Computed example of a mutant assay.
Amino acid sequence: MTVNGQFPGPTLYVTTGETIVVDVINRSPHNITMHWHGVKQPNFPWSDGPEYITQCPVQPGGQFRQKVIFSDEEGTLWWHAHSDWTRATVYGAIVIKPKKGTSYPYPTPHEDVPIILGEWWKKDIFEVFDEFKASGADPNVSDAYTINGQPGDLLPCSKSGTPTIA
């Protein structure tokens, strides 16, 4: 699964106090919800991602317009899918800049370079999910860890020069 054809998904750049609207269009064969990790969602908690807890999932072929309210958050957070094991597939960074006229509560960075850590399996993630549900055992550990969606030079699918995690 990807977002706008990207894996990881796009980095969102917002400002503290801003509200954005995200159109989630599900073209996958799986239910999906989105979770805005670390975003408080004041007065708007019913679309925060936990499937069947704060919202119903967006079914295959469906769509959902999601309002995301950034109240007083600053810095870098992340968003991710939040239905079953879709959490291991779709995710991205959120860079939250301070309001105009204010500054970060730490020295201003010279550059924003999000680093997103993840996992990668040689098998379809839903096969891994089905196997562990059927067996009752723990799921198989991932075959690699990723940095910005790349598993590193030790696996043939990474871009040249991708850093590795040892």
Rank of each mutant, 00 (worst) to 15 (best):
Q55M: 06
D72R: 04
V90Y: 07
P50Q: 13
Q59G: 07
P114N: 04
S71G: 03
K40C: 04
N31K: 10
K97E: 12
S71F: 15
Y91T: 11
V58D: 10
P98C: 14
P105F: 06
V68L: 10
P109S: 14
P42H: 10
H82N: 12
I96L: 01
H110S: 12
E51Q: 10
E51G: 12
T108K: 14
F70M: 05
G62F: 12
P42A: 01
V113W: 11
V39C: 01
P60I: 06
L77V: 03
I53R: 13
S28T: 14
S103H: 08
T76S: 12
K97Q: 10
Q41S: 11
T86V: 03
F64W: 08
V113Y: 14
P114Q: 02
Y52F: 09
H30G: 00
D112G: 00
E51V: 09
H35Y: 09
G75F: 00
D48L: 04
P29F: 04
T86I: 12
I32E: 13
K97I: 00
E51I: 15
S103G: 12
P50V: 11
E73V: 03
V113R: 14
M34G: 15
T76H: 04
P29G: 08
S83R: 03
V68A: 08
E73I: 01
P109F: 05
Q66P: 00
P98L: 10
W78H: 07
A93K: 00
G92R: 08
H30E: 06
I69G: 00
W85E: 05
S47A: 06
D84M: 15
P114D: 01
P114F: 07
W36Y: 13
E73A: 01
Y52N: 05
F44G: 05
Q41P: 02
A88H: 13
S103T: 14
R87S: 08
G61P: 03
E51N: 13
V39E: 00
G75K: 00
T86G: 13
T102S: 13
V58I: 15
R65D: 08
D112P: 00
V113A: 11
V39N: 03
P98T: 13
T33D: 02
T54Y: 09
Y52W: 10
G75A: 03
H37S: 14
T33R: 03
T102L: 02
H80G: 12
N43T: 12
P45T: 08
W85V: 11
P109W: 05
T89M: 11
T102M: 01
T89N: 15
V68S: 10
Y104A: 06
D84A: 14
G62L: 02
T102K: 07
W79D: 08
Y91C: 07
Y52K: 14
A81F: 06
